[in-house]
Design a protein around this nucleic acid. Structure first.
Lengths: 168, 168
DNA sequence: TTTTGAAATGTTATAATATAACAAAAGCTT
DNA sequence: AAGCTTTTGTTATATTATAACATTTCAAAA
């Protein structure tokens, strides 16, 4: 049985209080940085916010465009901030999309598994023990020593499935 | 229990008969194309060979360089051939490396899971039923409908683990 | 409070990966 | 051989990411 997690599949289209959602993420992020003695600078905070704004995987250059509304900014600025956030686990990179998402449970550096809706771009982050175990078992069976894993599942979230087949 | 597969973790460094290995892959590829009524042209055949040559994930531009030894060639040439091979399942793309690998069991379009050694770059392709099941179960539990999944596990293959800790 | 050293950011240039658009060639089908 | 489709060639450019070095910021020591 997969661990039951409280999944979101929420993005801008879905109803929820964005401001609260972002504020919570921000508060957690703040704490994580403090605990690790890292500086949550204005820029890093802003990039973190921007990754969260649309509640979907964001390309680095998308974030850059948003950032540029505040003033001048160049790619390294965004990439450095993203790298920082990635390292301490505040955002994750979705390799198959070359995109970045805000971490739903920021605490310490960790990996997750991602379910990503190809229709509305909402996503859910899991840390499913059954998936982890299956990978670990398989690795063990083959004598492979795991350092890191990437699990990205593409498909349709519940609400987009309904839209796809409207009664047919 | 994960399905026991006969894993390779073989690359140029390891001992095995490359020519035979490639020839077998080529023969299977030929058959797959025939069955699907697709043309396995000289170019496609060559690109397929080149992906296999080093028995490790190959960047498109690496393949391009090799291809250029035969004569003039530009990026679209390689990408088109790779896209063709990807579509019919003769190669796979490793998203986290922006690289391509030859498929070990080409039959029909399919996904796999990949274990990739960060030291020697060898890789193993699996289709592990336990991993598949864990992902399917988790998706089902959350009402997510899966179209495609990416599972890429990075770490050390058995022989590189031994080299890393030489008796310590 | 100034100095100073490390960390962060700015800036310019460029590397690496991938695709668009259109022209030419090759390979079937008649 | 004509005409069609598929494949490949070619040029240009889009997209993603990093290198290298200059400047600024910030906190801690003097």
């Amino acid at each position: 049985m997969p661990k039951k997690t409280s999944l979101h599949f929420i993005n801008e289209e879905h109803e929820h209080d964005h401001d609260v959602c972002i504020a919570e993420a921000m508060a957690k992020a703040e704490k994580v940085c403090q605990q690790r003695g890292q500086r949550f600078t204005t820029l890093r905070r802003r990039v973190f916010e921007l990754v969260w704004v649309y509640h979907r995987p964001m390309g680095a250059y998308e974030v850059l465009e948003l950032l540029q509304r505040d003033g001048r900014a160049a790619p390294p600025t965004v990439y450095r901030a993203l790298d920082f956030l990635l390292e301490i686990g505040l955002v994750h990179r979705i390799a198959s999309l070359n995109a970045y998402v805000g971490c739903i449970q920021p605490h310490q550096p960790h990996e997750g598994q991602f379910f990503i809706c190809e229709a509305c771009k909402s996503y859910a982050e899991l840390d499913d023990s059954a998936i982890n175990a299956a990978i670990a078992d398989s690795a063990a069976a083959h004598g492979f020593s795991v350092r890191q894993h990437t699990v990205e599942v593409m498909g349709l979230c519940p609400s987009c499935q309904k839209k796809e087949e409207p009664s047919s």
